[in-house]
Design a protein around this nucleic acid. Structure first.
Lengths: 387, 387
DNA sequence: GCAATTAGTTTACTTATTAAACGAATTGAT
DNA sequence: ATCAATTCGTTTAATAAGTAAACTAATTGC
């Protein structure tokens, strides 16, 4: 049972100070005191401890008009590194950053790994990334791995596109690198990334349309994954009760209409092609291909249904859409929004992805920051920051 | 900004002690100390204060085999009263209880009130209920009002079945009776009631099928209502993209298929009747009426779709169904569950309502308990308690 | 050079928890 | 009947964290 104690008070206040310096620094002790409503004495004591532990440091004074100049404090972002990996079906992307998510290197590798060698493959990839990083006081803070499938408690429960279910990724990598390792679903990481770097709101849904369709759910500022990590598996919500058969056993699942897989498969079938990439599809669409245009209509229509259902279910601050289609054909946002103009959706706040193809990687970074510092990161003046 | 302070420590621990006595009492100081992990000295200090404030009292000793007998502490449930009202379209139900939700009287009134006199009507009804209650140290702890419509911050935003939107219920009643007043959507109250009295789990969805279809959402033990109180308005999620037109402007909303209104309207139309009550409909079904049977099939089929979608969206501990159909035709639960046997729903934990037609009223009681005591009530050994 | 102002530290105090000793109450063995 | 063993609850001294207020430090402008 978590009970109140003096240690808890200091813990709460210390994290508040660290969060303030991280997200609003450089900032002075006096300003922190005003912002948090704690006395200057308390702030001074906590700051001394945080400096001692090398989380923050004093930098030059600020320019003020009157009185003694404040000593500015800033977060020591380069004192450690984070590795965030997008374990894609075709490509593995490894992103290294400092403790504020700043780019320290990005590498891409074809994913030729099988169930038998994927873990050693990841160790190899991580070592390659680590090799380029300078020594730091803290070293590696943690490793995040974005999985295209359902995860629960650091285990892959179900992944339709690769055969990695049940593998002890986290345990092995954690033993090997002696740092925390987190496996998390890509839609979940994606929405975390959007929240921390772009849209700082407490309740948001990230609608991720890639091979399948998933939603990352943030409620009260916290990721909600359900009791088995299956929350947000909206690809298998039924939106057409008499519709297309789905491998899951039901009919009319969203995923059969609005996923990349559905659209590209439909296109390939109609055009009697073996396989179509999203780039080829978009090129066809842009050149006025009628089939592609019809399928884009389908995507817009069914994605709007998905957004309608999410709005009426969650009534969130924002819904962010991230998909290859909307990234490559930006006007789709407006078209989806146009289909949502009815009485129940007056509070609709549909927004485009701010991070697009790196949302998963930056979401992984935020997960590690949260684990390592115990603090929610909210990137101030981020390149990606929205309204 | 909420910061850590000494007052916070005592506040946290004091509420934990009160919660323990409320939900697990009668219990001794020693047992509380072990359960919470606080020292006996701390518990003694907090208990002295709670006794002083008349929230708890000492009762006789417990029988133990060895050593000094513990002094049992219990919650003073009869020191105050709660009024919970179900503001139905046809009927207003007023329930009075002690501070643990025990029945102190239930009255029903036809709802003939208009926009102009509903507030004075409620004052009249509440006064009638109060008149029968004995004097208590605390008096009235609060009033909860269950609304069949969307509420946000104690205001009715939208109610399709009566014309009470925007009325200052809470302000007027709060001024008049000088106690806190809460307006809340009926599906939300319903799921709170089920959580506190029947299913003590942190993540649950209450599917309420009455005139419309709504879901009460509890995440991490807390009601989630969205940013405008519109969360859980699943009656307007689209489950049949080319389906029936809905007044909301879309096609194929769940409410057009699986609500009482939809089923009863369909039945009346087919049978060329003016109006059918749910009792008449159930009687027809029980007497083998084919039309009723077909419409029950429709209800089962679409309710299963709703549950499927909720499972894949929330992956909660449990989903509770509460509807006139399932209350009156219990085998429908099994039939709904039978339609859910597919790969994605292996964690399905669909359960019947434990409180049935009083879930809204008891949910209101829990809301007031939470407000008044600052503690989550979890009815121990409740008559309604499930597994 | 001094008043005014703001930043940050020091000091005395308050308060809540803890650990340990202690007193109280009860059982069971001698 | 008495006393050791046991458990319950209180008392006491110590610790730790925040607060308020006084104090020192640093800077500007008159």
């Amino acid at each position: 049972m978590i009970t109140g104690s003096k240690a808890m008070i200091r813990d709460i206040n210390s994290h508040l100070v660290l969060e303030t310096v991280l997200n609003e620094g450089p900032i002075s002790r006096a300003a922190i005191s005003v912002k948090l409503g704690l006395t200057k004495a308390t702030i001074s004591a906590i700051v001394a401890d945080l400096i001692d532990r090398q989380f923050i440091r004093e930098i030059g004074s600020d320019d003020t008009s009157l009185g003694r100049k404040p000593i500015l404090l800033e977060f020591c972002k380069e004192n450690g590194h984070i590795i965030s990996i997008d374990l894609g079906v075709n490509t593995i992307t490894a992103f290294t950053s400092d403790l504020k998510g700043n780019d320290c290197g990005l590498k891409m590798f074809p994913n030729n790994y099988t169930r038998d060698n994927i873990i050693s493959g990841l160790i190899y990839i991580i070592n390659l990334s680590l090799a380029e990083l300078p020594e730091t006081p803290f070293g590696l803070a943690g490793i995040a791995i974005g999985v295209h499938g359902v995860t629960n408690g650091n285990e892959i429960l179900f992944a339709p596109y690769y055969d990695y279910s049940g593998l002890p990724f986290a345990d092995r990598l954690s033993e090997h690198f002696e740092v925390p390792v987190f496996l998390e679903n890509e839609a979940n990481l994606s929405v975390i990334g959007e929240k921390c770097f772009c849209y700082n709101v407490p309740n948001m849904i990230g609608l991720s349309v890639h091979s399948g369709v998933g939603a990352g759910i943030i409620i009260d500022g916290k990721l909600y994954t359900g009791i088995n990590g299956n929350a947000g598996e909206i690809g298998h919500t039924i939106i057409n009760v008499d519709g297309r058969k789905c491998p899951c056993g039901n009919h009319g699942c969203l995923e059969q209409y609005a996923s990349e897989r559905a659209i590209l498969t439909d296109y390939a079938e109609i055009r009697e092609l073996e396989k179509v990439t999203i780039e080829e599809f978009v090129a066809a669409y842009n050149s006025g291909d009628k089939t592609a245009s019809d399928l884009v209509d389908q995507f817009v229509r069914y994605t709007a249904v998905a957004v309608n259902n999410l709005l009426n279910t969650f009534n969130p601050d924002v819904i962010v859409i991230n998909s290859g289609f909307t990234i490559n054909i930006p006007e789709l946002h407006e078209r989806i929004r146009d289909q949502l103009k009815n009485r129940m959706n007056k509070y609709c706040t549909l927004v485009p992805s701010g991070l697009q193809d790196i949302s998963i990687l930056l979401g992984g970074v935020c997960l590690i920051i949260k684990d390592y510092l115990g603090v929610d990161y909210s990137a101030p003046n981020s390149d990606f920051m929205m309204g």
